[in-house]
Design a protein around this nucleic acid. Structure first.
Lengths: 204, 204
DNA sequence: CCTACCGATCGGTAGG
DNA sequence: CCTACCGATCGGTAGG
């Protein structure tokens, strides 16, 4: 792996764990195994590095999300869409943590990014759900836009904080088990509150 | 208001907006209108100030939450419990933002706090819901513990990020309206995914 | 990619 | 609650 990618990787990891202000350029350079000025040769400034890290995540997001959502639009496999979305973040929880941190640290910047990259997809999903109200498949009183946003937030939030939130379950529970229960219940909540009928199209 | 309270207030505001590492003692002192060493006379260190801020929130939380939850246990007014919980955080969104930041910044410390202060209440709610499965009021396949945690996270998360997430709604929407829709849909999702029957005990 | 170095700011202390 | 000051670390630059 080339140095640039190593820097991006370590920066992502440290920004996610400690935040941008809580991480020094020195720490990242140490993690990569180079000197600080060498890092600043590859990225003009600490802020340029932050933007590159964020860009890598958003790009990946926009390459993966479309196919996931198109699968939803095609055959309404609600659970599989939710699993894919969860998997994308569970695969590397740092992505979720970093997004939440950016939303808190730079709300105005993130508003623009959300408008540009996420809102269109929220709208696609909302339109799809709105049409499904006609045949009575989706409950009439669902606020489809607000619903899509809440579900997305719940997925990102519960992945970002999943190991910490597991502390609220009884002692014995294994960490992996806590994750599975969290995602499982989240999917059940999202499905049950959307479709008509006892448990939606995939219920038993 | 005495100086100590002013310091706590400004620290809460700044930590919530910029994070602990992103806020200097100097900035807080400036906001209060005193010199930095004067602030450090009232709080032995920056970290002691952080602990005091967190303590004030957790204390308030533990004074308000019990009555809210007891109201729930008594007459199952689901919506009113959700409104109270939302209101507690909406009343001062800095509380929600600060909690999310602490969960990200110091997961191990927060695990202990959650175990001590929040887990008992999660358990009370889960037990209550579990009992309600008997008469068939609550859906049998609800994972009551995971459900309670997910709903709490969704409330805290959507309040912490509500003005930023509003950017995903269409242009025209007013900010207050976005908040109302977010909370309203969150309550609908939580209620519908819990109770048996089309819309739960308070549906139309 | 390195050594050597910069001014600014950090949290905190001495002493009144 | 203040003035004056501390060593350490910050992001970043010069020059090779």
């Amino acid at each position: 792996m080339d140095v640039r990618s190593q820097i991006l990787h370590e920066a992502t990891r440290l920004f996610a764990a400690q935040g941008f202000d809580g991480t020094s350029v020195q720490q990242i350079a140490d993690a990569v195994g180079i000197r600080k000025p060498s890092l600043l040769y590859h990225f003009a400034s600490k802020d340029a590095l932050r933007l590159s890290v964020l860009d890598a995540i958003m790009t990946h997001f926009n390459q993966v999300l479309p196919e996931v959502l198109l699968a939803a639009a095609r055959d309404r496999r609600f659970d599989s869409v939710m699993e894919s979305l969860s998997s994308f973040f569970l695969e590397d929880p740092d992505r979720a943590r970093l997004l939440v941190r950016e939303l808190l640290d730079r709300p105005d910047d993130m508003k623009q990014r959300l408008r540009e990259f996420v809102r269109p997809w929220i709208q696609v999903v909302a339109d799809q759900l709105e049409r499904a109200k006609g045949p009575g498949m989706v409950q009439k009183d669902v606020d489809t836009q607000a619903y899509a946003i809440q579900v997305l937030l719940a997925v990102v939030g519960s992945v970002a904080l999943h190991d910490t939130l597991g502390a609220m379950l009884p002692e014995g529970a294994a960490k992996d088990d806590a994750n599975r229960r969290a995602v499982g219940e989240l999917i059940r909540i999202a499905r049950t509150s959307l479709y008509t009928g006892a448990r939606g199209p995939q219920g038993t």
